[in-house]
Write a protein that binds this DNA or RNA. Structure first.
Lengths: 108, 108
DNA sequence: TCGGATATTAGCACATTTGCTAAATAGCGA
DNA sequence: TCGCTATTTAGCAAATGTGCTAATATCCGA
């Protein structure tokens, strides 16, 4: 119903896969190259690459290219806003979204 | 990696579908019978029934049978703990999980 | 420019998901 | 018990998702 639905859909679809959730958790410690991520799993590099592409498509990670490598890092705000937003919509009593300072005045 | 992983997996898989997310949001206003839920969508009753079964399997809704009907309602805590827990694991800075009083002393 | 390393894209196989219709089950009231 | 309503179960077709191997970019150093 609300404008961010398609947005949200991509994020939740991305979160449906356990490998992708684990990648996000691994990225919590800071950016990792594609190869470093591959090393943390037993599945093939192309499969990981596809997962990363999906996460990027959902806006949950960004990439930085340096030399031969591509470094991936979390887009934390995106995750927090989409998932936290949904959570707040369904059980607002149970969660508090911590707003980013300086941006919260803008809307609503 | 942590014990609640399988648990979490079921919840995120359940949340991957937009119809199911909408059902959860609709249930926010209180319990609804299966038929009332069907009326809110354009897809068939059997399809809704399956979505409800999946949500129940994930522990996100409970059912109450009364007469001819089956009433579904949210299990808010389950949603908050699973999803909020993941969110806290990935971007702890951005979200606060509001703990249920009386149960929080147990672990740590 | 060649070689090796890093990653992604292509293409295929297999499993899962989702929707539908038809049929079965359950409860209630006459 | 019969019939009506509410809901789920069965079974099937089409779409999606996920993993693999082979092939294709890209970049850097010698």
């Amino acid at each position: 119903m609300n404008e961010s639905d398609e947005d949200t859909a991509g994020v939740f679809r991305a979160l449906a896969d356990p490998t992708r959730r684990q990648i996000l958790q691994d990225l919590r410690g800071g950016e990792l190259s594609a190869g470093e991520i591959v090393d943390r799993f037993t599945i093939s590099a192309p499969s990981i690459s596809r997962h990363l592409g999906l996460l990027k498509g959902a806006g949950l990670v960004r990439e930085r290219r340096a030399a031969n490598r591509i470094y991936y890092s979390l887009v934390e705000e995106r995750l927090a806003l989409c998932v936290g937003g949904f959570l707040s919509a369904v059980c607002p009593e149970q969660v508090v979204l911590r707003r980013k300072r300086g941006r919260s005045a803008a809307k609503r």
